[in-house]
């Protein structure tokens, strides 16, 4: 065994050995590359974990599939085709996609808290990168994993009357990515404010169920009382569902019959809906980064 090429501890102030990261003088570009490598490291960690736990991933995917075929199958017999413009299962599909992406997005928040408890977070904080970068890395990792799982579920589209079309698939994946990003950012904002995983999980269990049901993914909200409509307009999941539904409507025109989000009686354009999601996600992430930087 040869001695590793560890540079000898030289006097302070002298130049460091070549190949060593984080030189004494760093320009903006190397600095950026440095931070990007840290983001990549965290995304890489999420992907490795995804691969290391195939059972866990499969079980996480199984839940929305069960919902789609059991809930969808059961209710399809009750809800008339005319009320929705499409079959109930086709109607349910955007909601199921959002349900698929929200689960791994939330895992990111749980992991931030468990990492803090296990001490792994401290290891991350020791790295010579800024704290917002670490948060961005977690967010990017969560978004990517969520989108991958959503894309896998997209494969079931044919079974519920959503045609296989590369363009449509790309559009749906882009929408899911946007929705995952916003959900992950919101989860992280919650996670940096809480220190106990139990509290976090209870709070999420409490909040996620109404958010999912009031997203318009499971039943149309047109006939619901006015206050639920107001809640829907503030529900990020509803924007995700609406974006997915309107994308599918490009190929399955009946999907457009159901009105999702309304701002004082008018439906905003899909681009505006996407912008709302993006702004909400970025704001949440910035706020989370601010809180995260304050923690000692």
């Amino acid at each position: 065994m040869t001695a590793p090429a560890l540079p000898a501890a030289d006097a302070p102030g002298t130049r460091e050995a070549p190949g060593l990261p984080a030189g004494a003088r760093r320009g903006l570009l190397p600095l950026l590359r440095h931070e990007l490598r840290a983001v990549h490291a965290l995304v890489h960690r999420d992907l490795l974990r995804l691969r290391a736990q195939p059972t866990h991933t499969a079980l996480m995917l199984l839940q929305p599939v069960l919902y789609l075929f059991l809930l969808g199958g059961g209710l399809a017999a009750l809800i008339p085709h005319s009320a929705l413009g499409v079959g109930y299962r086709t109607y349910l599909f955007p909601g199921i996609l959002i349900m698929t992406v929200q689960a791994p997005a939330i895992v990111v928040g749980i992991r931030l808290i468990t990492d803090r408890q296990s001490g792994y977070l401290r290891e991350l904080l020791m790295a010579p990168v800024s704290r917002p970068t670490l948060l961005l890395g977690s967010c990017a990792g969560g978004t990517l994993v969520s989108t991958i799982q959503g894309a896998v579920l997209l494969g079931l589209g044919g079974a519920v009357g959503v045609p296989y079309d590369p363009l449509l698939a790309a559009l749906l994946i882009a929408c899911m990515m946007l929705a995952s990003f916003t959900i992950t950012a919101l989860t992280l904002l919650l996670a940096v404010s809480l220190s106990r995983p139990e509290t976090f999980q209870m709070l999420l269990g409490l909040v996620m169920m109404p958010l999912l049901f009031l997203s318009g993914g499971f039943f149309p909200l047109e006939n619901m009382p006015g206050w639920t409509r107001a809640l829907t307009a503030a529900n990020p999941l509803a924007y995700g569902v609406d974006l997915l539904r309107r994308s599918i409507a490009l190929r399955v025109p009946g999907q457009a019959d159901v009105v999702g989000i309304e701002w004082s009686g008018r439906q905003p354009s899909p681009f505006l809906e996407g912008a709302v999601l993006l702004v909400a996600g970025v704001t949440a992430l910035l706020w989370a980064a601010r809180r995260f930087s304050r923690v000692e």
């Binding site: 792994y120 790295a127 990168v129």
Partner: peptide, 20 residues
């Protein structure tokens, strides 16, 4: 703390990349 679900090598890889 190490990530128990990853291999020794993977743990080191992630850490090294964090350090740029």
């Amino acid at each position: 703390a190490l990530d128990p679900d990853l291999t020794a090598e993977q743990n080191l890889y992630i850490h090294a990349r964090l350090y740029g």
